[in-house]
Simulated assay, not measured.
Amino acid sequence: MEVVVFGATGYLGSHVVEQLILAGHSVTGVVRRGSDARFLHSISCFVKELDFTESAIEKVISEGACVVNCIADTRMHLSDRQRAKVEVELTSRIFTCAERAGASKFLQLSTVMVYGADRPAHPIDESYPLRPKYSYSRIARQREEVLIALAESARTNLIIVRPSNTLGKRDSSALPALMGSLEKGFFPVIDGGNWRYSNTDARDVGRAFVHLLDLQCSSPEVFLVQGYEMSWIELKQQLDHYLGRSSRLLNIPKKVALALGRFLEFVFPYGSSPPLTRFMVETMSTHALFDDSKLRATGFAPRYSLRETLNDALTDQECVT
């Protein structure tokens, strides 16, 4: 199948491209001018630089092609307006252009953070109410709502994919931050670190997109993706085992972490990268368990365990450095 991937140089976007190519699809990776596309070239992906005008977007999408949108502004400290420029406005433009170009299917990378931080201690599925609290989650929900509204009167089929927390190669945030702490001899957790959450190997996220290309749907569909369950303490143990040394647990009370996050959000201007925000605190101190039975019922099964994820990710020099 001919597939056009927007946001192909991103962390998860690059994994989607890689798995599509491994599955034999013809892939065009769409990137902004001046983007670092060395990895895409190394796996023989056709790379197209765009200025993201509507005419340029339409020109890169052939009739009958499948479009995968992984574009996102992943910075933690943005105003709703700043975040919406990419998450909502640009995404809407890409979908509208895909529809006009005659694309057969549009797969959108979303996030489980649309559910907010008010989640139970048991797995939830796609039907659980969306109660986003912070900007990252609010705008992600708005993006989904706008896409679904556009898709209701479109010929292009829409599938929204919500991966649980992911680990893998080319991660530029979570693993590098943890490795930096471990190099200093400590592993930070909030309120004990026994919070349980679903995790997915980034390769399995890419495999899920490949699988969903062949799924026939007559109306917009939403799918959760998750691979295995763990806690922050279990992740610490696995990383200690991998590195061959024991790190010290740095336990931070949640109230203290939230107060510090609030202060840093005030001090750091929008668009910068505070070392801690309240959103980051909530993600590390809330159960985040997900039930992906809907996706598995279509025949998809994740392949990788936590140990396999770390073995693959931590041998990647780009991640370690």
Score class of each variant (00 low, 15 high):
I159S: 01
V222N: 09
T156D: 01
G299N: 12
V320S: 02
F39I: 10
G10C: 11
C97T: 02
K59E: 14
L243I: 03
V320N: 01
R303Y: 03
R170P: 01
E229K: 08
H211I: 02
S55W: 01
P129L: 14
I94L: 11
L295S: 08
T298Y: 12
G206S: 04
L258V: 06
Y242N: 05
S246C: 09
D291F: 10
L107K: 02
G180W: 00
R75G: 15
Q216H: 14
K59P: 00
D125W: 08
L250C: 14
S293H: 13
R155F: 01
D80Q: 11
L20C: 07
E265L: 04
A117K: 09
E63F: 07
L258R: 09
V47D: 10
I61W: 10
I71S: 12
P132H: 07
M284F: 10
V88T: 12
L212I: 03
I21Y: 04
V60S: 09
L249T: 15
P129C: 14
R296D: 01
C45W: 08
T309W: 05
P163E: 00
R248A: 13
H41S: 14
I61L: 11
R196M: 08
V68P: 06
V146A: 13
T166L: 00
D80H: 06
S44N: 15
K236Y: 02
F6V: 07
F290D: 09
K294T: 09
K48W: 06
H211R: 07
R32K: 15
S173E: 12
R155M: 00
L249R: 14
I71H: 05
L12S: 05
R83A: 13
I61D: 10
R245D: 03
A103Q: 10
L264S: 07
S127M: 07
G116D: 10
F268A: 04
S198H: 02
V47S: 10
Y115N: 15
V3L: 05
V320H: 02
P275A: 03
I159N: 01
F279I: 00
G168C: 03
S164W: 00
S137N: 00
R100K: 15
I159E: 01
P253M: 09
L212F: 04
P302Q: 07
E144R: 09
I252A: 03
D292I: 00
V27N: 02
E144V: 08
I252E: 02
S293G: 09
V31S: 08
S247Q: 11
R100N: 13
E145D: 15
P188F: 07
D118H: 12
V68G: 04
S92Q: 13
E318P: 00
E99Q: 15
V17P: 10
G7W: 07
R155C: 04
R278E: 13
